[in-house]
C-alpha cells in the first residue's frame, strides 16, 4: 500500500469537509448542545425547583438504584455532590461517545454517498489508487476529524464541567482516569466503528441522507450503554471502560478486514454488493 496515495486522499477529503456547511454544522452543534448545555442544566436544575433541598434529595436517591460499586465511589459526598458527580462523570460519559460516532458517521456518509450525489466520485475512481488505498483513505479522512472534534469536545466539556462543579465540590473533577481512558481509548474505537459501517453503507447507496440514516443503527451500542448506566445495571469504572474500548477495537478490526476485502470501486458504480 502506498501511504502517500492514502494521505493524498485524506487531504482531499479533509479539504472538502472543511468547505461543507452541511457536514461542519452537525459536527459543531451536537457537541455544544450535549456537552455544554447538558452539564450546565444538570447542575443548575436542582435550584430551579420549589425547594432546592427537596429536589436534591430526590435526585440523589437515584444513587440508591445504582450498582454497589458506584455507590462506593460516591460514598462520603453530600447529596448535591453525589448528584453532580453522578451526572458529570458517569451519566454523560456514554453521551460523550455520541460525538466521535456522529462526526465519523457524517463525514463517512459524505465521503462516498455525498460524492455520488454531487457526481464527483467518478473523478476519484480514475485516480491511480488501489481499492484498499481508497477504502483506507476514506476511513482515515473520516476518523481524523472525528478525533479532532472528540478531543476538542472533551476539553470543552472538562472546562464547563469543572466550572459548574467547582462551587459544589471545591475541586476539579476533570481530568480523571475514567474519562482519559474514554477519550483516548474508547472514543477512537467508537469513531472507527461508526465510520467503517457508514463507509460500507455509503458505498452502496446513492445519497448522503440515505447513508446517514442507514448508518444510524451504529448508535445503538451507545444507547445501550447509556440506558445500562442510568438504570444501574452497570457503571463506567476504569476497568469497565477499558474493557469496553477493547470490545470496540475488536469489532473495528473485524469491520476493517471485511471492508478492505469486499470494498471494490466497481461496486460503487454498479451498486452490487461486495
Amino acid at each position: 500500500m502506498h501511504f502517500s496515495a492514502v494521505f493524498a486522499l485524506v487531504r482531499r477529503d479533509l479539504k472538502i469537509v472543511s468547505q461543507s456547511r452541511g457536514v461542519l454544522l452537525p459536527m459543531l452543534v451536537v457537541p455544544v448542545l450535549s456537552l455544554v448545555l447538558l452539564p450546565v442544566l444538570a447542575v443548575v436544575a436542582p435550584s430551579l425547583g420549589d425547594s432546592e433541598q427537596a429536589t436534591v434529595l430526590a435526585l440523589s436517591r437515584i444513587v440508591d438504584w445504582m450498582s454497589v460499586g458506584l455507590q462506593d465511589q460516591l460514598a462520603g459526598y453530600t447529596d448535591l455532590q453525589k448528584w453532580v458527580v453522578l451526572v458529570l462523570v458517569y451519566f454523560l460519559a456514554p453521551l460523550y461517545l455520541i460525538v466521535p460516532l456522529m462526526v465519523a458517521s457524517v463525514v463517512a456518509a459524505d465521503s462516498f454517498a455525498g460524492e455520488k450525489e454531487r457526481k464527483t466520485l467518478e473523478a476519484l475512481l480514475y485516480t491511480p489508487t488501489t481499492d484498499a488505498e481508497l477504502f483506507f483513505g476514506k476511513v482515515l479522512a473520516a476518523w481524523l476529524p472525528a478525533m479532532a472534534v472528540s478531543l476538542g469536545s472533551f476539553l470543552l466539556y472538562a472546562t464547563v464541567a469543572n466550572w459548574v462543579a467547582w462551587p459544589v465540590l471545591n475541586r476539579l473533577l476533570f481530568p480523571n482516569a475514567i474519562w482519559l481512558i474514554l477519550v483516548f481509548w474508547v472514543a477512537p474505537a467508537v469513531a472507527a466503528m461508526g465510520l467503517s459501517v457508514t463507509v460500507l453503507i455509503s458505498s452502496r447507496v446513492q445519497s448522503f441522507q440515505e447513508a446517514f440514516q442507514l448508518g444510524g443503527f451504529v448508535v445503538l451500542p451507545i444507547v445501550v450503554l447509556l440506558v445500562g448506566q442510568v438504570s444501574g445495571v452497570m457503571y463506567f469504572s476504569k476497568g469497565m471502560v477499558a474493557l469496553l474500548g477493547l470490545g470496540f477495537w475488536l469489532i473495528d478490526a473485524a469491520l476493517l478486514v471485511i471492508g478492505a476485502r469486499i470494498f471494490r470501486r466497481e461496486n460503487l458504480l454498479t451498486g452490487d454488493p461486495g
Binding site: 496515495a5 493524498a8 486522499l9 487531504r11 482531499r12 479539504k15 472538502i16 468547505q19 461543507s20 454531487r118 457526481k119 464527483t120 466520485l121 467518478e122 473523478a123 476519484l124 485516480t127 491511480p128 489508487t129
Partner: peptide, 18 residues
C-alpha cells in the same frame, strides 16, 4: 465531476497529489 465548493487551484493541487 468537479466539487463546486473547491477552488480551481485546490482541485488541481489535490489531483496532483493523488
Amino acid at each position: 465531476a468537479l466539487d463546486e465548493r473547491m477552488t480551481a487551484f485546490d482541485t488541481l493541487r489535490l489531483h496532483g497529489l493523488t
